[in-house]
Design a binder for these strands. Structure first.
Lengths: 151, 151
DNA sequence: CAATTTTAGTTACACTTGCAACCAACTGCA
DNA sequence: TGCAGTTGGTTGCAAGTGTAACTAAAATTG
């Protein structure tokens, strides 16, 4: 069956990107869940709180590219597990002030090397030239696409 | 707050890939839904049936990297909308034999150029050298990661 | 300094998704 | 044959997710 405009899914860029990133996320998600009972959204929140303390949920949402509802729910679970602590901001009584708890920090310190390992495992398939290009291409697309999606 | 092992989410490859591909998929999904009432899963099924007729649901699942439940549900909706046709295979009475209906083909022919446009819009952010590298890198990672995930 | 609009965060609801269990049909092997 | 295991496909249930509506607290403005 020949078409005037061929579309072979296997060569279709958005499709390939989506499948690849899903396979990747899934495999990471499984491991985080199994070893730490963490979902990807929870881990993203922890990742941000790991290097930036005392920020609000809104800022977490911004930095994780998650929407505020997802963040709110992830925070609720992390609070329940006592892996983060929350206070009200004295400056803005609507806003919360978030940080990892001692236990949260402990888990964070365990997950980080694991995450970096995952990244290395991925990069290991590429030679150094490819690695540089990948970073560069992601930078470009990130800026272009995220800018558009914010509109 | 400095850590021995730094992890900045913004530089973390799996994270960037995931966010980028989600933004991309979302924007495409929105348009397909608005203009054709098609979900991404439905569209993927159609895309496969557009160039390969008379295959089973299992084969569709394989080629779309979707699991069989997702395929089954997408097929149910497409059948309901009469965009595909299904028969039982005479060789294996469990298996179905699927193809686009006339209406399905009509929609397929409308979506394909749109899809290619989306791809071009994405590629337009990259120079030709970057485009070549991106393809090459995706090929490599695709083979490596999908092979692993199949295990 | 009220009245209006915006913002931080949560909740409720509908919808999607993934997993396990399931049925029916096929395969392989004794 | 005939029984055990596998495979194609569907269904039910639980969990996750997005949207809209909501509360409370700022910020804006006239």
């Amino acid at each position: 069956m020949t078409r005037n405009t061929a579309l072979v899914l296997d060569n279709f860029l958005p499709y390939r990107l989506s499948v690849l990133s899903n396979v990747l996320s899934q495999s990471i998600a499984r491991e985080y869940d199994k070893r730490f009972g963490l979902s990807i959204t929870e881990w993203r929140v922890m990742a941000v709180l790991g290097c930036t303390t005392n920020i609000s949920a809104r800022e977490v949402a911004e930095r994780t590219a998650m929407d505020k509802v997802a963040v709110s729910r992830a925070l609720a679970k992390l609070l329940e597990k006592r892996q983060i602590e929350r206070a009200r901001s004295p400056l803005d009584k609507r806003a919360s002030v978030l940080r990892l708890s001692g236990e949260g920090r402990r888990i964070y310190d365990l997950v980080v090397p694991l995450a970096l390992e995952h990244e290395q495992r991925l990069l290991a398939h590429l030679d150094s030239e490819e690695q540089v290009w990948l970073t560069r291409i992601l930078d470009t697309l990130w800026d272009a696409e995220l800018a558009e999606s914010m509109r």
